[in-house]
Simulated assay, not measured.
Amino acid sequence: MEGVVTPDGGRRTRAALAEIPARLDRLRVTPLQPLTNTREQSPSLPAGYLSPAPSPDELLIQQRGRKRLPVTWSPDIETKRNSSFQSTIRTPPKNAGRHSPQKLGVTLRSTPRKRLLLGDVERVPLTPEKIDFSDLSTPQKFKITSPIKTPPVKRCKIEKTLELRGPIEVALKGLSPTQLINMIKTITYKHPDIEDEIRREMPVPDLAPLEEKLNYLKSNIFKGLPTSRLTSKTDSPAYSRVSTHLVAFKKCLVEQGKLLVESQHWESVIQYVFLSWSYVRATPVWDHQAHNAHRKQCFRALLNFCLTALKKGDLEKEFLIDVQDKLQSFVSDSEEVQTCLKQVQGLLQE
């Protein structure tokens, strides 16, 4: 029960379920209405806070709308549209059995791009029984031209010949060995008399540049060794520091020897062997026998060069005697020197 004050100033009571007076109807809440313009009702908020403006890309998408078919009818477009739904791959057969091998990841339908590229090309039957190979025009019927254009192949430039105005020895310095060989070969072909004169004037190969390279690479080996007195210069750590220099030394020695062998200057080949042998002998002898493989390979390569020169070269006996004396001093470095000594002795007995 709740007391209510009357206009007379008295006080009366009313029941809990008594009717609410009509003057309290003002407390009713009206239903929500959609806001038409939020910026007018809330001018203090910044622009685009409640409803941000669409981006330019979104406006273009809204204006573009759905893609429509062309108004004009074209037989090419209709044929292309109908052919795009046809698959160029045959429908696979039904499962032959449970244990039949199946390739995973193989798509049975062609991709849209492949259908577009092959839309204008004549369809080729994939089954060989449908192709008549007796017809001579069959390859022309099923010839497929790729729609992708390949760039044209660049033509090789023809070597230009310039008219020389300065000294010829200056111009020859800029040519490679291959260019010099081709030039001399062309001249001797045109003028055969000049070939005999070139053979008479041809000097012996100069071994000084070859020796200079070997000396430089050998010095790099000793520069890489440790300089401390407390560490060994022939152990495994020291070898690991100069292993790359040993490989470079062996590579240079073999390449220079092969070049002389190909030139067939046999006396120069043997002289190069004697010259290089002293540089190989000067390389360090390592504590671990496996680390001396480069040293043994260099000795073996030089002996092969020497043996080739002895077999193919027409050497004089005086020169062979000098070769025999020097080879005997190399026996302590490699046991394979005996093969060259036998070859020299056989040539001297003839």
Rank of each mutant, 00 (worst) to 15 (best):
L104M: 11
A238M: 02
T339M: 07
T308S: 06
L225G: 01
V254L: 06
L225P: 00
E262M: 12
W277K: 04
Y272I: 04
G119N: 10
L17F: 07
T150R: 12
K141P: 02
I148L: 13
G97V: 02
Q41F: 14
T30N: 09
I181D: 06
N292R: 03
S42Q: 12
I144Y: 00
S44H: 15
P112V: 03
C306P: 00
L348Q: 11
F222K: 11
K157P: 06
L60N: 07
A301F: 07
R199K: 15
N215G: 12
S240C: 02
Q349H: 11
S110P: 06
D287H: 10
A282R: 07
V29G: 08
F319V: 05
R281Y: 04
G257F: 01
G119R: 04
P52M: 11
P237S: 11
A309I: 03
V4I: 09
Y279F: 13
D193Q: 10
V121Q: 15
K154M: 08
P112F: 09
D287Q: 15
F133P: 01
V273E: 06
G346W: 07
L162P: 00
Q338V: 15
R66Q: 13
E163G: 04
Q102G: 03
R66I: 12
P31G: 09
P31Q: 14
H265E: 13
Q264Y: 06
R115V: 03
K190D: 07
R11L: 15
S243M: 05
I158Y: 00
L108Y: 09
G346C: 11
K258G: 11
E2H: 11
G97N: 06
A309E: 00
R26D: 08
K103S: 08
F299P: 01
P93Y: 02
I181K: 06
S44K: 13
G257R: 03
H245M: 05
I168T: 05
R199A: 07
L347G: 01
L45F: 12
K342D: 15
V204M: 09
E335A: 15
R123Y: 10
S268W: 09
S134T: 10
N95S: 08
F249G: 01
H245A: 06
T161Q: 07
A47D: 15
K258T: 12
K233P: 00
E267V: 03
I77R: 14
N292L: 00
P43N: 08
G3M: 12
L27T: 07
F319G: 03
Q33N: 11
L69Q: 14
Q349R: 13
I321T: 10
L327P: 05
L348F: 07
C306A: 15
S137R: 12
I181E: 06
F249M: 03
L225N: 01
I20W: 08
A96G: 05
V344L: 06
H291T: 01
L259D: 11
S219D: 14
K233H: 00
R165S: 09
R81Q: 13
S228H: 01
Q289V: 14
G119W: 04
K190V: 04
L275D: 14
Q256T: 07
I61V: 13
A301I: 04
